[in-house]
Every structure is written in C-alpha cells, then in structure tokens.
Nucleic acid binder design. Sequence first.
DNA 1: GTGCGTGGTTACCCCAAGGTGAGCGAGCAC
DNA 2: GTGCTCGCTCACCTTGGGGTAACCACGCAC
Lengths: 120, 120
Amino acid sequence: MATLNRPGTADGHACGIDTAMEVIGGRWKVLILWALREHPLRRFGELRRLLPGITEKVLASHLREMEADGVVRRVSYDEVPPRVEYSLTEDGIRLNDALEPLAAWGRDRSTGPRSRDEPA
Amino acid sequence: MATLNRPGTADGHACGIDTAMEVIGGRWKVLILWALREHPLRRFGELRRLLPGITEKVLASHLREMEADGVVRRVSYDEVPPRVEYSLTEDGIRLNDALEPLAAWGRDRSTGPRSRDEPA
DNA sequence: GTGCGTGGTTACCCCAAGGTGAGCGAGCAC
DNA sequence: GTGCTCGCTCACCTTGGGGTAACCACGCAC
C-alpha cells in the first residue's frame, strides 16, 4: 500500500521506523494488534465486537493488509456459516512487544506530571 | 486536535499507544524527530533541507503540533532575517527512545530472513 | 528602485483512507 | 417459503491531511 515516494527514503531510508509505520499506519491497526494479543484466536465477529466503532469493511481490509504484512494469521474453515479465525504471527507478537515502550510513553505522559516543558 | 471518538477509548482507553499515535501520527513527524535527534538545534531552513520533499506548510504545521504536544522546543530570536531554532524536549527525546524498538523491528524485517510466516 | 534570503501564512485543490449501507451465498430453524 | 447467521464484498460518499503556489515583512546588497 502507498507506494508513494517514501520520505526519508531519499538518503537510503530513514531508520526502519518508516517500515513499521507502514504496517501500523492505519486508524485501527494497533488496536487490532492489541485486541489480538489480549484475546488470541478470535473470529471476525468477535474482533468487531472487541473494537466498538469499526466497520466491517475497515476491519476486513485492515486484517487483509496485516495478513499480507505477515503480522496476522488467518485460518478459515470450510463450514456454513463460515468460520474464520485470526491470530498474531511471531512477527506480530514481536511488533506488539516493540510497541510497548511507545505505549509506556503515552501512558506516562497521560498520567505523569504535566510540568516538564508545556506550560498548561 | 482530532477530538473524534477515539477508538478503544470506549473501554476507558486502549493502552497509551493511541496517545503516542496521535503525537507521531503525521506523515513526517517521526522523520522530524529523527532529524532533530541526529542534528540537534536546527533552523527551519536546515530542517527543510534535511527532509527532502517536505513543504514549508507541512513542516511548519507539524512543528507547531509537535511543539503543542511538548516534544519539540521552539526558540525564535528577534533578528532580521528571522532566526528560529528547533530542538527536542526531554519528552521528545524519550519519545524517540521509545521509537527505537519499533525501528529495530522494521530494520529486522527488512534485512532478516523472510521465511517466518509469509510465503513469499 | 530591484532582488535575495529568512520563516512563515494564506488560499486553494486533490486524493486516498475511512465511513455508510446494501447485498450475497450457503445452510439451518421454523 | 421467510428469516437468521457469518464473513465478507461492492458501490458510493465524505473528510481532512497533505501538496501547490503565491504572498508577507524586514534588512541588506546592488
């Protein structure tokens, strides 16, 4: 997706961070990752219920992209009504781990003292 | 900015990751962060030259948002021609540090063996 | 006077990500 | 038959982030 001229790629490529940003660069991607970590092996409908507000279209397209990116595994059973189960791959788990410091940073600034640099 | 109903905020709020994503959720933000880490205390024009492809408008608006988010410090001198210097705040430095595992993940998957989960 | 260089702002446009709502295909309950 | 479930797909529309380009004020060099 987004095969536009990657910024920072001019000088070779920035640092690998852009690669990661492409993978998690979707409104719901990190939340899907998080949901799949806390609730492994979920079905489509369960995932949708875990992410209030997401639409089927967006969930489906995000899951397909994440599958193509190798962070999500999709297993569909030939049943009726259809059953599909999603889980994290090893790479997805490692991505989730790599996201933790960022989450910690966000948590820290939400709860921590607000008197470091910003006046308000 | 973006006071839309945050996904994941329904259940309290996801994990702090969304906070971080809001701060770095701009096409060039992480690259600005990176540039400012490798070249501390840069002027507007220098920054623009460090980020080939970025436009003045986008650089200016991103810098303002990042200043409002408390990750970038802006110091302007009352001279002519005008001089403004940008640098990272403590929070910005910590954000950059928190980004490193993500960069490592991206670097690893770019260079590492491509035979873990994805077939190609 | 003209031009240059600085660090922006303003107005406008564009396109892709995301949202909306409908439909589908197969089997089962009734 | 009708309607329901499940996991999508399709067609359409809207939103806003980002891109384009012109302009500004100020001093200096010419």
